[in-house]
């Protein structure tokens, strides 16, 4: 079966458009769905199907699970938050931050303590972002940070994860800098975007503004390797300044 989302929307032009060349040029400046044609006041069938397809991909990205094989292949182990399903994660954002005692125990057993930098992945609102970006980012981050003389903790994956798990995990492992790589809420352009939330010594009372954020990491946005190289430098800066977020 043909994948109708194969062609990026910026290259997608309605078959009967007469000003194809000019439209291509204009479309380079925006990701909006312009020049998709119409029939009376309505969308054409192909434009409408494409809209539905992209909408469905976004929705699937939120509700599908990261497979256990993906985690194993990345060389990670897995813990989860208080949520028991994707549905619970969406409806109970507060539970997505809580790591219960048994899961904390797993972390304590499996992870190196007192690292300079603790990196972990979370599914967040996009499961495909893990398989798409995690491998490239992890290696660039680990090698880059270690080359700069920083120790990197044992990486892992948190299922049903929200960013503020860092408030618990940071103190638990006594990490100086925590970097959460988490799936971004998908939009209509891509369902693979990841964000990095980086905090210096996160703790339960920390403010949201203490996170340094790098977003839009995907092959459609900032290339994962280049983003990771940038994050290496950010983490160096954060460790030296002993602060993160807007005060950096």
């Amino acid at each position: 079966m043909k994948d109708i989302t194969e062609k990026p929307m910026q290259q997608w032009i309605s078959k009967d458009n007469k000003a194809e060349k000019a439209l291509k040029r204009v479309k380079q400046n925006t990701t909006a769905r312009i020049g998709i044609g119409r029939s009376g006041a309505r969308y054409k069938t192909d434009a409408f199907l494409r809209f539905w397809a992209d909408q469905s991909a976004a929705s699937d990205a939120v509700f599908t699970e990261v497979t256990p094989e993906t985690i194993v292949n990345l060389g990670l182990f897995e813990i989860k938050t208080k949520c028991r399903s994707k549905f619970e994660m969406i409806t109970r954002p507060d539970w997505g931050r809580i790591i219960e005692k048994d899961q904390q125990q797993i972390l304590k057993e499996k992870c190196v303590k007192d690292p300079d930098v603790q990196i972990y992945f979370g599914d967040g609102l996009s499961s495909p972002s893990i398989s798409a970006n995690a491998e490239d980012m992890l290696q660039v981050l680990k090698l880059g940070l270690e080359h700069e003389g920083l120790s990197v903790g044992t990486p892992f994956f948190v299922r049903y994860c929200r960013v503020n798990t860092a408030r618990t995990i940071g103190p638990l492992l006594n990490a100086k800098v925590v970097c959460v790589l988490i799936g971004e809420r998908p939009g209509m352009q891509t369902d693979e975007s990841m964000s990095a939330y980086i905090a210096y010594k996160p703790h339960p009372q920390m403010l949201e503004s203490e996170y340094t954020v790098v977003s839009n990491i995907s092959r459609h946005g900032i290339a994962p390797v280049e983003a990771a190289a940038h994050i290496v430098e950010l983490i160096l800066k954060i460790s030296k300044a002993k602060k993160s977020g807007i005060s950096l």
Partner: peptide, 13 residues
């Protein structure tokens, strides 16, 4: 292409 930071770091290693 946008890849110089990752590539530069890899080279320096």
């Amino acid at each position: 292409e946008d890849m110089a930071k990752a590539f530069g770091q890899a080279l320096r290693r």
